[in-house]
């Protein structure tokens, strides 16, 4: 655990989280949410929770992004906020 690395990743996590809620295109929001999940996964790997990081890498960055894309594909892509 190196605190500089962790500091940078924590910052990136917050940036990705805000960006996922900021963008007006729901497909981009889904992909940014995948990036958020992957940053979170790196953070947990740095903290030594390897099993949790592995689960998040397969679930958060893999399957839940696909679920979001499928739901956006079946509904509308644009949003007002």
């Amino acid at each position: 655990m190196i605190w500089q690395v962790e500091f940078i990743i924590l910052f990136l996590v917050i940036i990705c989280g805000i960006a996922a809620l900021w963008v007006k295109d729901l497909l981009s929001a889904a992909i940014l949410f995948g990036a958020y999940s992957f940053m979170m996964c790196i953070l947990w790997a740095v903290m030594g929770a390897v099993d949790v990081a592995f689960t998040e890498a397969s679930v958060g960055a893999g399957v839940s992004t696909i679920f979001f894309v499928a739901a956006v594909f079946r509904t509308s892509r644009r949003t007002k906020d």
């Binding site: 809620l21 949410f33 949003t79 007002k80 906020d81």
Partner: peptide
């Protein structure tokens, strides 16, 4: 605050993580 349901779901997931 967010108006869109998908955005609300993304917010819920951020809370969970």
């Amino acid at each position: 605050v967010k108006n869109n349901l998908i955005k609300k779901i993304i917010g819920m997931n951020i809370f969970q993580t």
